[in-house]
């Protein structure tokens, strides 16, 4: 099943307030899902007989923010974060890319992490991927069983893959750059 057909199927099941944009022009076509319904959609695409997406290939975050003024002219995205889900079905051998768009900060208050539901109850591997995304991209996954930093030390400040992240001057007496 291709992404366009899956989009139709999802629109049938949910409404257009939950299933948002369909992009078929990208090399890997993707479907945008609203942040508060990702858990339902994830459960549906895994359990529905026509879809059977039993394998989560990858889950990662992307920070859409361009700080370089030269590059910013060509950059036509509003600043936001995205969580990207790459799915595959072993039995039906098809792919799907789901996206959730989030504000960079919850309620635009700097320092408050945006929230999205955890899908670790659907695919067990999402547990570690979400911990990494939380650690490096600063996205809070609600109802995650164990949302701790995974690559950085637990007392690290900031989230490294954010575009406006500044490297700390010092960490436990070790000088930075």
């Amino acid at each position: 099943m291709n992404t366009k057909e899956i989009h139709g199927l999802l629109l049938n099941q949910f409404d257009d307030k939950r299933i948002l944009e369909l992009n078929t022009e990208a090399t890997d076509p993707w479907i945008e899902v609203s942040a508060d319904s990702i858990l339902e959609v994830a459960r549906f695409v895994k359990t529905d007989e026509r879809l059977q997406f039993d394998h989560l290939n990858d889950l990662c975050g992307v920070d859409y923010l361009e700080l370089d003024p030269k590059k910013a002219k060509k950059f036509d995205h509003d600043p936001h974060l995205e969580v990207v889900y790459h799915l595959y079905s072993y039995s039906l051998k098809h792919y799907l890319v789901l996206k959730v768009k989030l504000p960079r900060w919850k309620n635009d208050e700097e320092g408050k992490l945006p929230e999205v539901d955890s899908v670790s109850s659907i695919w067990a591997i999402a547990d570690w991927h979400e911990r990494e995304t939380y650690d490096l991209m600063g996205i809070h996954f609600s109802n995650h069983p164990n949302l701790r930093r995974i690559l950085c030390p637990e007392d690290w400040v900031g989230h490294g893959l954010r575009k406006d992240y500044s490297f700390p001057d010092e960490y436990h007496g070790i000088r930075g750059c």
């Binding site: 090399t27 290939n57 990662c60 060509k74």
Partner: peptide, 30 residues
């Protein structure tokens, strides 16, 4: 544009995700 590709490395499926924005440097590599 953006794309994701997995290949069969000896230890399993290694995936790379690239988001391009029209510059030489990608917006995100994963």
């Amino acid at each position: 544009d953006e794309c994701y590709l997995e290949t069969e490395a000896p230890r399993g499926q290694m995936g790379f995700y690239v988001v391009g924005t029209g510059n030489a440097e990608p917006l995100r590599v994963r």
